[in-house]
């Protein structure tokens, strides 16, 4: 078995009496899409927050490329190769689409201390940003102000910003949220190819997308991973059916 790119070991996080994350050990291997599913309030967002460093776990560890990053702040994790997207789009609404993508390029190249030359006249920043926009199909909107984008386009931009980082691993928090059927299908096709560049830890509610994409699925219920397996295994798992999939499966 190849070394996992991203791994958690015995991650625990409690808010008062509520165990939001309860001894979670998962890993993300090269080339795969590992989906995390679970009912609302299962602790998916809390788990993502600990993996990306927004929240410190009570106990347990997070490893990125074999290195313990449990106490590493989010910017450093990003520089080490963790690229994330947000459940609720985190975009600079007053800036243009290109400027938002360019922010990712600035982070990737660490050129934030350049004070004089315009960011958009820097060929490397511009090319990186434009290439990412092109890949998600937003290059025509490059000069639009982000606030004017539709919800679906904002979701695309959210992915594009992560692409500019050329990360070692993606962590995507409900990238399909609020997308229509067509948008979902297009993003599904895109993520399908993206896994070859870097594995994706995918938190998603859209079961069609999850079953179409995931190499492995982990089911989170009340903060615990109750099952991990392939799509077929998860579909067949009685405990999962009872706890989560219910009539659907």
């Amino acid at each position: 078995m190849t070394e996992p790119v991203l791994q958690t070991k015995g991650l625990c996080k409690a808010f008062g009496a509520l165990r939001a994350t309860d001894n979670v050990s998962i890993d993300l291997r090269p080339g795969e899409i590992h989906a995390i599913i679970g009912p609302n309030g299962a602790g998916k967002t809390t788990l993502i927050a600990q993996i990306t460093g927004m929240l410190a776990p009570d106990s347990g560890q997070v490893f990125l490329d074999g290195e313990d990053v449990t106490r590493t702040p989010p910017p450093t994790r990003a520089r080490m190769g963790l690229g994330r997207t947000f459940q609720i789009s985190q975009l600079a609404m007053g800036d243009t689409v290109l400027q938002n993508a360019c922010l990712g390029a600035i982070g990737a190249t660490q050129r934030q201390w350049r004070l004089v030359r315009p960011a958009l006249r820097d060929p490397e920043l511009r090319d990186r940003a434009m290439a990412a926009l092109e890949r998600v199909g937003l290059s025509d909107q490059a000069r639009s102000v982000t606030a004017e984008l539709s919800h679906g386009q904002r979701r695309q931009l959210e992915v594009a910003v992560a692409l500019t980082l050329a990360p070692r691993a993606f962590v995507m928090d409900e990238p399909m949220a609020g997308l229509g059927t067509e948008g979902s299908a297009r993003l599904t096709a895109f993520l399908d190819g993206l896994r070859r560049e870097a594995p994706i830890l995918l938190v998603e509610h859209d079961m069609d997308a999850v079953f179409a994409l995931a190499d492995r699925i982990s089911v989170l219920v009340y903060g615990q991973v109750i099952a991990t397996g392939t799509v077929a295994e998860i579909r067949a798992d009685d405990m999962v059916r009872e706890a989560y999939l219910g009539e659907e499966a």
């Binding site: 990306t52 927004m54 702040p73 989010p74 910017p75 450093t76 990003a78 520089r79 690229g83 994330r84 947000f86 985190q90 975009l91 600079a92 609404m93 007053g94 800036d95 400027q99 938002n100 360019c102 922010l103 990712g104 600035i106 982070g107 990737a108 660490q110 934030q112 004070l115 960011a119 910003v161 992560a162 500019t164 980082l165």
Partner: peptide, 19 residues
């Protein structure tokens, strides 16, 4: 300036790109 403006608008995003 671009990064500073983004830090005003969406600090979480700025951290997520390594700044």
């Amino acid at each position: 300036g671009l990064a500073l403006g983004a830090a005003r608008q969406v600090p979480a995003r700025v951290r997520a790109v390594g700044l």
